[in-house]
Design a protein around this nucleic acid. Structure first.
Lengths: 348, 348
DNA sequence: TTGTATGCGTTATCAT
DNA sequence: ATGATAACGCATACAA
């Protein structure tokens, strides 16, 4: 682990100045003989450019940060999967931050942009506070936010459309003849919880179905909590014939409970989830789910950021990714049979 | 996005030298009055230390790279989930590389250590070639390898024990009275494929069961391929009563096919997977699976690296993480009923 | 074409 | 206690 060679080492060895070494290494016009000597010396010494020194000089790190709320959440991982190759192809390294859904950590990341260890940031905050907006306005590097920001915020923004997403699923259930469509939601004080609750109500209204509070059950965005919520809903409204679940984990909990209660899925109760995670395809019956386009959002965010890094100043852009309903067995399957590898998708 | 303030800016504003500014910022003994002036100026200007310049001077980046074969693979993600917080707690940032399981990319990452943009590297190569070993020996920063390396390789190493893992599962199936235990494996020219194939044979031998080639089917490590392999096996050996699957995806494929064939799981055929991914708990019936301790391996690797970064030279260490059998419904469940949220685990 | 010298923003040494 | 200055490794304006 001896100290690596620098351009000084090479210059000595090749008998030229460090300026010549630098020129050769950067492909600037140089005499053939000098090129040869420098390259030879560099090869022998196993020279590798010091990225830190280059960054200090060039004021560019070729690094981009991605701050996600939770390294364990499949939705963020889907984004990561798309962001990674886009950045890599453009010659950027990816610095990963996990903010554990703590607002202070997110503010911290924004603040740390001042350290200039990255050229830009993609951030997916779970909710945008006043503090976020202040830091965003003062950010020392380009930022792309995945998620909704208040109207007029001057920042590149990629968002999902969970309102349309819920509508796609509810319409789908309705088209299957279901009229007692329950909603199993997460906490209403979260952005997705609130949005999905409102969208559900709106979708029912547009279909001419009455909004029945008894059909709505609040739990949390996890499997066990989802299951408990469904159990309560089932006890209260035994004749429910469809469940719109605010995410896939809740939907899995719903499958657990319905199975235990002897209800057939989808014959007795159709179940739809949201996020279209890997789990949706893995469960039995496989889960109809609304994809909110995590992958597409990640890709769009990366491209927005690269565009700004390479292009310079321009007006902030807003990209909205449309949801997709992925229909599987939990709404249209034959109850307890069939080996299906095919899936149907319907765009929005 | 105006240029941020530097210690020069602060020095001017506070009417002191840059040396004093640096001292105050680093908490070195300084006169109260000077401290006050500097802090005031720094606050007003919104000063943030430039990480690049600090790194150049200190020769430390406080960044660590994690090179994983595939951003989509749950096993690597489990490692990532553990590595991230350990590094974060120690004040290190995480640079993520995805090598797409391409050896050249891995070599590239090792080579790029010479750029000194990270202080160390955790790498999980899918197989270790001669080129890897050469680069490892010449690596310009501490490296921890997750996965097996040849005896005598001077590098910190964390490995799983899939041999014992397979044995745990086979013993479990045997203890349930199964005697026609099939193996559904991935390609034999992969490290895991070869290891699991050998371990299966060995485990059968120790149990006094004959090794029957007809009970072994090679496919690939994916759901559809696994399903196809199981279909073939089933056609050839109709009386198979248990399936040891080389990973969870294969096991899911097995469930698909067994269901389609009308075989009850586990009554007719018990199924065990490997890796204990999220999918194992999500499927129906939930999947008995051998955890190879991805999370633990990630954590151990991060700790090994930190130890070396903070401690300096020492002999290379080897950490072997024991597998754990996680028993679920696919081997001991009541065929088509029961809402179980509990799981049993048995250590090795 | 090549070399000298300067600066990127810090930290640290050495006088004062 | 403080200030002037060198050094980290590189890129480049300018002079030769």
């Amino acid at each position: 682990m001896a100290d690596g060679p620098t351009i000084n080492t090479i210059a000595e060895r090749a008998g030229v100045s460090i300026a010549s070494v630098s020129r050769v290494l950067n492909g600037l016009p140089t005499r053939q003989e000098t090129v040869r000597k420098v390259m030879a010396a560099a090869d022998e010494l196993g020279y590798v450019r010091n990225a830190v020194a280059r960054s200090l000089k060039s004021r560019r790190t070729h690094q981009v940060a991605f701050a996600m709320a939770d390294v364990g959440n499949p939705a963020y991982l889907a984004m990561l999967r798309e962001i990674q190759p886009v950045l890599k192809a453009a010659g950027y390294r990816l610095v990963l931050h996990s903010t554990d859904a703590v607002a202070a950590d997110e503010i911290d990341v924004l603040h740390s942009l001042g350290e200039r260890y990255v050229d830009g940031l993609i951030m997916s905050p779970l909710r945008v506070t006043e503090a976020h907006l202040e830091m965003l306005a003062a950010a020392r590097a380009p930022v792309v936010i995945i998620g909704s920001v208040p109207e007029g915020t001057r920042v590149d923004n990629v968002r999902a459309d969970s309102r349309t997403g819920v509508r796609l699923a509810v319409d789908h259930l309705y088209s299957l003849g279901r009229r007692r469509i329950g909603l199993v939601n997460g906490p209403l004080d979260t952005v997705p919880g609130a949005a999905r609750g409102a969208a559900y109500r709106e979708a029912l209204g547009d279909l001419g179905l009455p909004y029945d509070e008894g059909l709505v059950q609040i739990g949390d965005f996890y499997r066990a909590e989802g299951g408990r919520a469904v159990a309560e809903l089932l006890a209260r409204v035994p004749d429910v014939d469809a469940l719109m679940c605010a995410n896939d984990l809740i939907a899995l909990g719903a499958l657990d409970v319905l199975r235990a209660a002897g209800r057939r899925v989808p014959d007795d109760v159709a179940v739809a989830g949201m996020d279209d995670t890997d789990l949706a395809a893995a469960s039995w019956p496989s889960l109809t789910s609304v994809s909110l386009g995590s992958a597409e959002r990640g890709k769009a965010a990366a491209e927005l950021l690269l565009d700004r890094l390479q292009g310079g100043e321009r007006e902030p852009r807003l990209v909205t990714v449309p949801p997709r309903l992925v229909v599987r067995a939990s709404t249209v399957g034959e109850s307890a049979a069939g080996f299906r590898t095919d899936e149907k998708e319907s765009g929005s």
